[in-house]
């Protein structure tokens, strides 16, 4: 059965930044299977097409939501939807962050830009069970303070350490300035017993994972989220290949031991 989108109603629409919007979605009829943090859906905008979007909120905690940055015809269309509009959704697809193995260990979340959105349900999951995990730290880098998403939540999350840094501060900014890797030295974690979860632009992922590995976090405990062109999400179209991986099937979340050799080859 070729996967056909399932109609979902936009029940809430929030503008996060000048370029991003978060849509909360509820099924019109039949519901999709439960998404795990890190997984993605193919989201259809009527008459424009489909794009892969990871979930920024899952059914279990707060309802299904996607945080969308308008960068093309489909994402522009999705960002322009209004409450009451219908979009199509199919999924869940791909691998998830997998918080379970991190039980009893420190959890280090590193996000670049809108990369915080796919990590959000993971953070909520870890914070919902404080006794189950060691120290939970959230490090976020953004271009400017105005580009930060989940800004209020960031202040409320009961983490061991939350660090936010921007490349370009504005006049009202009194926080950190610099790259997100700089915050790694300030987060409390024991490299031998830490699971790290990294999402953002690929160079930021590479720099962060390299730094973490150098600090002694084993590469297989550094989980990163990859992005490649996905057209079908079912492993049939070939577009999202990254060497041996079909990112829609074997990713998007993979261990750094797998990603590192692939991301080090240009134009792979």
């Amino acid at each position: 059965m070729t996967a056909v989108p399932v109609p979902h109603l936009v029940v809430d629409r929030r503008r996060d930044t000048a370029e991003t919007v978060t849509l909360r979605l509820e099924p019109v009829g039949e519901a999709l299977a439960e998404f795990a943090p890190g997984q993605f859906a193919m989201v259809h905008c009527f008459g424009r097409g489909e794009i892969p979007l990871s979930v920024s909120s899952v059914q279990g905690t707060g309802g299904l939501a996607h945080t969308i940055r308008s960068v093309g015809a489909v994402s522009d269309g999705l960002c322009a939807t209004r409450v009451g509009d219908v979009v199509g959704l199919r999924g869940p697809y791909g691998t998830s962050w997998e918080l379970e193995p991190a039980r009893g260990q420190d959890v280090l979340v590193v996000a670049g830009g809108i990369g915080l959105a796919p990590l959000r349900p993971l953070i909520l999951g870890a914070l919902a069970e404080p006794e189950a995990y060691g120290r939970v730290s959230v490090l976020v880098g953004a271009r400017t303070p105005a580009d930060l998403i989940s800004r209020e939540e960031l202040e409320q999350w009961a983490t061991a350490y939350t660090g936010v840094t921007v490349d370009w501060p504005d006049t009202g900014w009194h926080g950190d300035v610099g790259v997100v890797t700089q915050l790694l030295g300030r987060a409390p974690f024991d490299p031998d017993r830490t699971w790290a979860f990294v999402c953002g632009p690929e160079p930021m992922i590479r720099a962060t994972a390299r730094d973490l590995a150098q600090r002694g976090v084993p590469p297989e405990r550094i989980r990163v989220s990859l992005e490649r062109n996905m057209r079908c999400a079912t492993g049939h179209c070939g577009h999202c290949q990254l060497g041996p991986l079909l990112v829609c099937r074997d990713g998007p979340v993979v261990g750094w031991e797998q990603a590192q050799p692939l991301l080090s080859v240009r134009e792979l």
Partner: peptide
């Protein structure tokens, strides 16, 4: 060397480009 690398990374303005995971994809 760390400071230099950080400064270079910021020169590229990574977050300014649309690149960010599955947040708009190719469309």
């Amino acid at each position: 060397s760390h400071r230099l690398n950080a400064a270079r990374a910021r020169l590229v303005d990574l977050y300014g480009s649309p690149a960010a995971f599955l947040s708009g994809g190719a469309g």
